[in-house]
Design a protein around this nucleic acid. Sequence first.
DNA 1: CCTAAATATTTACGCGCGCAAATTTTTAAT
DNA 2: ATTAAAAATTTGCGCGCGTAAATATTTAGG
Lengths: 343, 343
Amino acid sequence: MRYSKIRNMEEFAAVSGISRPTVSKYFNDPGSVRASTRARIEASLKKYDYQPNVFAMNQNRRTTKNIGIVVPNLADPFFSEIARRVELACIDAGYSPILASSHGSPEMERENLLSLRSLKPAGVLLAPFGRMSDEDAVKDISHDFPLVLFDANIGDVGQAFVGTDNAQSVDMMVEYLCRSGEPPCFFEMKSPSNPNANKRRQAYLDSMQRHGREPSIFQADGEGWHFEEIGKTEGGRLLSSKAFSTNTVLCSNDRLAIGMLSAAYGLGLRVGHTEGCDIRVAGHDDHPFSKFTCPPLTTIAQDYEAIANRAFNDLFEMLEQGERLSERTETTFEGRLVMRDSA
Amino acid sequence: MRYSKIRNMEEFAAVSGISRPTVSKYFNDPGSVRASTRARIEASLKKYDYQPNVFAMNQNRRTTKNIGIVVPNLADPFFSEIARRVELACIDAGYSPILASSHGSPEMERENLLSLRSLKPAGVLLAPFGRMSDEDAVKDISHDFPLVLFDANIGDVGQAFVGTDNAQSVDMMVEYLCRSGEPPCFFEMKSPSNPNANKRRQAYLDSMQRHGREPSIFQADGEGWHFEEIGKTEGGRLLSSKAFSTNTVLCSNDRLAIGMLSAAYGLGLRVGHTEGCDIRVAGHDDHPFSKFTCPPLTTIAQDYEAIANRAFNDLFEMLEQGERLSERTETTFEGRLVMRDSA
DNA sequence: CCTAAATATTTACGCGCGCAAATTTTTAAT
DNA sequence: ATTAAAAATTTGCGCGCGTAAATATTTAGG
């Protein structure tokens, strides 16, 4: 049963029989008031319909409970999935995530970081574009707020980085592919919009060398974020012209692979590792739809959960102790080989 | 070149040689000040690094420039795509979109709406769960803020609804399928989490009757948002047991269809409308990945752009004239038949 | 029961800006 | 040039809460 609406903290404190500063303390950190007081306030909260005014709260506060989350493109399921988990981690810890997508545009990443400033975030979790990012904007943010990068790293910006160990994951895939059939060619974008692509290419080269195989890289023209389209068009071209030097293609990411699978299907090629198949295709990331491609895509699963939680925890530590980490940390999690039918 | 940092509007007004209230007016609406004054302010903005404090701005304001956008699940590419366009429409018009995903949980939709309150949004754009939504929470929001529903409608809640004309779109698809081959069975979730599913089922029934065909509906068990998984499991079961009464299946949405295509592939069934194919599969929504399924999915394209723009415009009109629409409007856009290879 | 520590209250100021009313200045129209 | 309208300025209050210091009260430990 809701009584008459409470208009501000003063009124709420009055009807609760508690002083306003104590109520203020409660909202700032419920654990900071005596258990009996906490109980009275919470009983009152059930009875009366009140929540503090966010703007007034944050207006005159040293540090807010806001955490900015900026990702390059929420239309990419990889980012929507990882952003989702980061968001939940923030909420669980009592923070207010402010999610912003840069819609594939580094320029908007800059704007997002700028407008984040005015929200005085306690900290920022950023999955940057990488080289395409406006490094000054990122450094500026990092100067004024605790910053943790995830997914993609930029030099020594921010206080921590969390991502996947591309060297390990690609090596594992190359090892598997070499062991189970012909060594893989590598298929990627010519101008990748993400630094992981470069790491994966290098990892491929290193791994092939270790296995004593001849590397063979194919780069697709095309700009933007329509990876499936590019994978289909350019991959299809390569497939139909029999340009690949082996019957196995490792794609730089699942979205390219999905496009390539589509192209292969269109060309009547049978994809898979069983007898009678024409080609093997593998990807990287374990994109949410990779399980449902035809055939299901063999890929590397990134540990979304671990990355999201670790990124948040790295930030959380700084918030708790009220200072930057003494040393920049870089954490990478291992990828997991997900064997399906495509390779 | 940036001079010393400005601390507040007072200081900025001083260095600009303009009074604070006028500067305030400018930030509230640049068009409300004389062109010459505007030019001086903007020159000053280039010179000095200042942006008004968001919290102070909104704290004592009748109405903010915030627009709340709430969608059921950003992990679903349909919603991430439409949310993206709504966001951009807001930004273009000078508003600040606040995007919130309910992560598939009606309970979180309620929480999102509650916490939106405290941001005093100028208006709210909501793609509700439908029957699963907490109707009281939605009505409460609608009582205090202009509200436009999109994608899914709820009775007469809010001041406007914008979506797709399911009756038209499904009829068009049924007509096409009947004309080009065997009449379609209908495949859907038993307990759909979205009111559009019910409309589509009804549209299917009506349309089949109009065409003098016997309708045949198959409902998949399963809860939650893993539509592909459900489509694959349950669809696969139906396919392998030859339960479908015709060789054509119309799925309630593309995600189910994607799962079913995956199941068909696994069973070695050939999907398509050409000779030698075993089954035709069609979907609804033109999901971003439907173009890359194997075979590419024949489906109905919703007009994302039109829906997003119209939803925003309906809200914008209310904001402009400062009052609710005199009458609740419902706008539906026609779907577009996208013929690919699957049906 | 006494004492010290922990917690709550009282009092008071200020954050940065919105907003309104009265006044002055600028602009546009006659 | 005169006048009315439009825009800018001055003045000043208040939003709702954070926060700090001094004081009072409660709690825990012996």
